[in-house]
């Protein structure tokens, strides 16, 4: 099934502007995608999986991107059907200050950890997630590092997060490649 047909099918199924903004992926994006209203993502996911013609049985990836200029966080779902051999990408636009949307882990169980990762690194809250804890970073970590305005803390449990540059630390003179002899003469060398 072609991507445009998938989009039309989803749009016909749901009233209103649940699915909008189809992009066929020929303008540089590799995969065709369309936008989904965030609060309906679970219904759309259920439809994509259960409809016999669509039969999207595999959630490849859940990821998030921070767009501070647009004040948005976009959550992106790559879904694929092993049976029908077709793929589509869903995008949800969220408010950057309060990013939240329903979980799809009830539809595709693999979303459990992928949404945990998205929460860990971007701070997106997935409503109804059974176990929304940090996945990669330590539990006591502060902040969400993949946000563009993330500032690294000075230390973590007493471990400094910076290391002095040894060249500055020991004042090593690095001769310039262009005129190493001239530099040496200036400093009273040979």
């Amino acid at each position: 099934m072609k991507a445009e047909e998938i989009f039309e099918k989803v749009r016909a199924k749901f009233a209103g502007d649940v699915a909008t903004g189809f992009n066929d992926g020929k303008g540089g994006d590799r995969d065709a995608w369309f936008l989904v209203e965030p609060y309906r993502i679970e219904d759309v996911a259920t439809f994509l999986k259960t409809d016999p013609e669509l039969h999207f049985d595999y959630l490849e990836c859940v990821t998030g991107i921070d767009y501070p200029d647009d004040k948005q966080i976009r959550v992106v779902y790559h879904v694929y059907s092993y049976v029908k051999r077709h793929r589509i990408v869903l995008k949800c636009l969220l408010d950057r200050e309060d990013p939240a949307l329903p979980t799809v882990s009830s539809v595709w169980p693999t979303a459990n950890w992928q949404e945990r990762e998205c929460f860990d690194l971007l701070g997106v809250l997935f409503d109804g997630h059974p176990d929304l804890r940090r996945l990669l970073l330590p539990d006591d970590w502060e902040g969400h590092p993949l946000r563009k305005d993330y500032v690294e803390a000075d230390e973590y449990h007493g471990i400094p997060t910076t290391r002095p540059n040894p060249i500055e630390l020991f004042a090593i003179k690095v001769p310039s490649k262009a005129a190493p002899l001239a530099d040496a003469k200036k400093e009273g060398g040979p």
Binding site: L137, P145, I159, T161
Partner: peptide
């Protein structure tokens, strides 16, 4: 060494 998660 410029990663947020790696000990320097």
């Amino acid at each position: 060494q410029y990663a947020y998660s790696v000990c320097k």
